[in-house]
Nucleic acid binder design. Structure first.
Lengths: 119, 119
DNA sequence: TCCATAGTTCGATAATAGTCGAATTATGTT
DNA sequence: AACATAATTCGACTATTATCGAACTATGGA
């Protein structure tokens, strides 16, 4: 993943409103949520919510599809997966720098443990 | 970790210059790097570099300590560890949500191929 | 003390991002 | 068709962020 791309993803998540939206969608799971339902949870003007949804969509973290009058958004797990991989790569360059929470190892587990093998 | 705090960390990393600085320091390992050495790698005005170092320091991602005339910065792995933990928590709420790593497809999506899927 | 070097802080400017009411588009209902 | 609902886009405004030369602070050496 390019540094520029990663920075765009991080910047997209680096705003309280968008991070809240994203986490809400992550918690909602693959089914996602309809915009009005998101709006009910997070108090913000409809235009503002739409603005942030568009931003998250543009960088590829979420995507939405119309369902009659509604538009249902859900997270693109793959993008998030790539971002986590980027953040954890070059991280230990050999030795384990993130051993305590198991964040690294669980990611490696998910990914088949080939990205950054300890030397 | 609070959502606000996480957003601040993500925003700090969500800028190409700062992400480059951070990754350079991550690669440098626990020894870190002196400011002038960072400046040699990443072309930017000294004031700009200082500005970004201060930002990364303020959110706790890096810290610096003086060594005679130099100031040596290094990454605070713990902060990064917490951030990764935050990002991966609530992620699958039980089931594995990141099994496949659809790396290429999600990248294509970001490239704007199918911005608004035809309905 | 005087000078050079390493970094930071200041100040002014330019650029970008966020907010939200109002207008608009899309869909479904009567 | 007329109306209601869901969501986006527009437009204008405000706030924040980034940049960088110049001035400043801190340290070490002559």
């Amino acid at each position: 993943m390019e540094t520029l791309t990663a920075a765009e993803l991080l910047a997209a998540l680096g705003h309280e409103s968008r991070l809240s939206i994203f986490r809400l969608l992550v918690e909602a799971g693959p089914e996602g949520m309809v915009v009005s339902a998101i709006g009910e949870q997070l108090a913000m003007a409809a235009a503002t919510l739409s603005f942030h949804l568009a931003h998250l969509t543009r960088v590829g973290l979420i995507s939405g599809q119309r369902e009659s009058r509604f538009i249902r958004y859900s997270t693109n797990y793959g993008t998030m997966d790539e971002l986590i991989a980027f953040l954890t790569s070059n991280c230990c360059h050999g030795q384990a720098c993130l051993p305590k929470t198991g964040a690294c190892s669980s990611t490696e587990l998910r990914r088949g443990k080939t990205e950054n093998p300890p030397t």
